[in-house]
Simulated scan of single mutants.
Amino acid sequence: MTLQTQLVLRALLRNPAHEMYGRQLADETGLMPGTTHPILLRLEQAGWVTSRKEDIDPHAEGRPARRYYRLTATGAAQAGAALAKARRPRTTALRDLAGEGGTL
């Protein structure tokens, strides 16, 4: 899992039932929308995220309709587990950092 995907998941996990639109997630994570939106699409295809397009009149609002995203129940559980695993370095990785027989 990429660091960028982890950032998006962490932002969504702060309040799993809350919907966020793509640009809002980009601003919160510090990622560019061109990075955030493909991640959201992949998460939606995997069933971790669901989305909906807001029902507004773009001319009356003076902006295009937003697409809102939120984690599914399954997605929240899987995201939490994946992020917990991503934070734990493998023992072999720690040994590699220390070098053969070395210490950290």
Rank of each mutant, 00 (worst) to 15 (best):
R10V: 05
H18K: 15
R67K: 15
L43D: 00
A46N: 07
G75K: 03
R23Q: 07
I56N: 03
A84Q: 13
V49I: 07
A93P: 00
Q6F: 03
G34N: 13
Q45N: 12
T91D: 13
P64I: 07
Y21L: 09
L3I: 13
Q24T: 10
A81M: 05
R87A: 15
E28D: 12
P89A: 15
D27S: 10
D57V: 02
T91H: 14
L7K: 10
L83P: 00
A11Y: 00
G80D: 03
L40D: 00
L94F: 14
A11K: 01
A65T: 09
H37M: 10
H37Q: 11
L41A: 05
P58I: 07
G62H: 08
A26D: 01
E54H: 06
R63P: 00
P38F: 14
H59Y: 13
Q45K: 13
L31M: 12
P38S: 12
P16H: 09
K53M: 10
A82R: 03
V8T: 02
A86L: 10
R95M: 04
S51V: 01
R87H: 08
T36A: 02
E54L: 04
T2H: 10
G75F: 02
A77N: 05
E44V: 01
Y69S: 05
A84G: 08
D27M: 09
R90L: 06
A60Y: 14
R87N: 09
E100F: 13
R87W: 06
L7E: 07
Y69N: 09
L104I: 04
R52I: 03
L3D: 11
A84V: 09
A98M: 07
E54F: 06
L83F: 07
I56E: 02
R66L: 15
A11C: 08
A26E: 02
L41S: 04
T36V: 10
R90G: 01
L7M: 12
Y68N: 10
E19I: 07
E28A: 13
M20Q: 08
A79C: 01
A86G: 08
R95N: 02
P58G: 03
L7A: 12
H18N: 09
H59R: 14
A81F: 05
R23G: 01
L94A: 13
S51A: 10
G75W: 01
E44F: 01
W48Q: 00
R14L: 12
V49Y: 01
T36G: 00
L40G: 00
I39G: 00
L40M: 11
H59P: 00
G30P: 04
G75M: 03
A93N: 08
A98F: 07
G99D: 11
Y21C: 13
K53D: 06
P89F: 15
R63Q: 06
R67G: 02
